[in-house]
Design a protein around this nucleic acid. Sequence first.
DNA 1: CATCCACCGGAACTTAGGGTTC
DNA 2: GAACCCTAAGTTCCGGTGGATG
Length: 350
Amino acid sequence: MEDNTIIRDLRVLTEEFIPARIIHRDGQLRALRDSMMPLLQRRPARHAFLFGPPGTGKTCLSRYLLEELKKSAPVVTAYVNCWVDATRFRIFYTLLRGLGAFIHRKGTPTDELFDLFKTKTSGRQCVIILDEIDHLEDETVLYDLLQAGAGLILISNAETALHRIDARIRSRLMAAEQIAFPPYPVNEIADILGDRAAYGLVPATVKRSQLEKIARLCRGDARAALSILSLAAQKAEDANLDAIPDRFIDAVFPALLKDSRRQAMETLSPYQRLAIDLLKEGKQQSGALYAAMNEAAGRMRLAPLEERTYRKHMERLVRKGFASAEGSGRWRIYAVAGTSEPLFRPASDR
DNA sequence: CATCCACCGGAACTTAGGGTTC
DNA sequence: GAACCCTAAGTTCCGGTGGATG
């Protein structure tokens, strides 16, 4: 392990890693800390809503804060990404796993999972992070969690995510602390990379000017920046070099872009991929797209879809950020989104 | 200005595929 | 292996919706 020329600990450069300190997010950190403060006096936390573009530190900061919180108060915490687990069943399933309760039966009723969750957390203070909240498919989870007395940290890319949820739940979340996460400027990303590199890489294997180069490439998205640094470091390690050359940084960037697209597409059903492929040729009105889809499905030996089913697929694609919808009712026009969602936007994208 | 048209989306169903329990 | 339970995807039914149309 210590023979490595570049890499000391790759985990430090992943987005799951919770760093020992948070830099360039002092205001946000203080705001979130203050809303969790009541827990120390055994009072309920104030809910928080964190919003901002991808890679601006929302998830990282929340997880960091809860780790710190647990050091000074007997608080139960859990994390759920709604992009991965979007239904009521799956959310309680992963929540319970996070709380150390293993459900081995997949045939367990969801209400039973909820009851188990309540007994697990009863009499204890509980804070739950719900990441990518705009991808949640069943809002009753929010109602359940509020009823169970959990403190919520909701995270979204869109500032408007809370407006879209049901009024009855929304009114209880209106008092939530709203915390904005703007994109990082170049020098701050470079600082963050430097901080991580100090633990994750062998000293003097990457120059400050290179960190700034990465920071410029990824346009304020720290997650993308970490991926670039990590991949370039691995490449240099494999080549047995003792420093990361500039050309590796350039080489890694397009590969990363393509890979993230491909990975995101793999989470879609065949029909959804088909819809996106058709939309890539140009935006379409809903009715025309439906006709084109069933026509293409026939050629691909896929069964034609009922109109309502088609609409359900489109609803999903829009919520997941793959497609965008413009206009209402029968004048709705769908297009590929690709621009705002999963990762960073390339300089030119039609 | 009333009516129509083509799509919207909630609700309740069916079906397929996974599990457990006895 | 029969009798259940569950989820998730697809379908059926149907009351909206709002610009287009005469």
